[in-house]
Simulated assay, not measured.
Amino acid sequence: MRKTFLRLGSLAAMTAVMLGAFGAHALKAALSPEALNTFEIGVRYQFYHALGLIAIGLLLYWRKTNLLHWGGWLFTAGILAFSGSLYLLSARELLGLDVSWIGPVTPIGGVFFIAGWGCLLFATFQDNQKTYRKKHSEN
C-alpha cells in the first residue's frame, strides 16, 4: 500500500504543477480573476494533499496501521472531490458546462481532507500493527 500512496502522491503533485502552469499561462486570459482564483485554490490544495499522500507512503515503511491507510484514501478522495469540483466550477463558463450541481461536492472534499489529517493524527497513537503481531505471536 505504501507504494500506492507514493505513486498517487507523486501523480497528484505532478498534475498539480502541470495544472498550475496551465492556469497561470493558458487560463489567465480565458477566465475571470475570480474563476482563476478558484482554480488556483484547487491546485494549492491538491499539492498540499499530494505531499500528505507522499508522507503517508513514507510512514508506511515504518508504521503499519489501518488509520494511515484510511488517511491516504481520504486524501485521495479529497483531491478528487475538492480540487476536482473547483476545477470544474472555475472552467464551467469556458467549457459551457452546467455544473451547478457540483457546488456541494467541494465541502465534502474538504471533510475528506479533515478526516484524512485526523487519521494521520490518531495513527500516531496506535501501536504499529506489524510489530504488535510479531511480539504477541511469539508468546
Rank of each mutant, 00 (worst) to 15 (best):
Q46L: 07
Q46I: 07
R92K: 14
L67M: 10
A50H: 04
P104A: 13
K28L: 15
T65P: 04
G42Q: 08
G84K: 03
Q129T: 13
S10I: 04
L36Q: 08
Y87C: 06
S32V: 08
N66D: 12
V99L: 14
T38H: 05
A55C: 10
F22K: 00
T76W: 02
I102W: 09
L95H: 07
G23L: 05
G96W: 12
R7W: 14
C119G: 02
A30D: 07
E40V: 06
S90D: 02
T4F: 14
V105T: 10
Q46H: 07
I41Q: 04
Y48A: 09
P104Q: 12
D98R: 09
W101C: 12
E138W: 09
S100L: 13
G109P: 03
S83W: 00
G52P: 01
K28Q: 15
T15K: 03
H49E: 10
A30K: 12
S32Q: 09
L121V: 10
I56M: 03
V105Y: 04
P107N: 10
I102S: 09
L88S: 08
V111W: 07
W70P: 00
V111A: 15
C119P: 01
L68F: 07
L36S: 04
V17I: 15
S90M: 08
L89M: 14
G20C: 07
A123V: 01
M1W: 11
K3E: 15
P104L: 15
L51T: 02
G118E: 02
A55T: 06
I56N: 00
V105C: 06
H69T: 10
W62I: 10
F112V: 05
G57K: 03
A13C: 10
L59A: 14
Q129I: 06
N139W: 09
M1D: 11
F82P: 01
G52R: 00
K135C: 08
A26K: 09
V111E: 01
P107D: 12
K28P: 04
L36P: 02
K130N: 15
M1T: 11
A91F: 06
G84A: 04
S85W: 05
G103P: 04
G118T: 11
D98T: 09
L31C: 06
H69K: 11
A77C: 12
N128I: 09
A35F: 06
E138F: 08
S100D: 14
G78P: 01
T106A: 15
S85E: 11
S100G: 15
L95W: 13
A26L: 13
H49R: 06
G52A: 15
L11Q: 09
F39T: 02
F75R: 00
I102E: 03
I114T: 11
V43E: 00
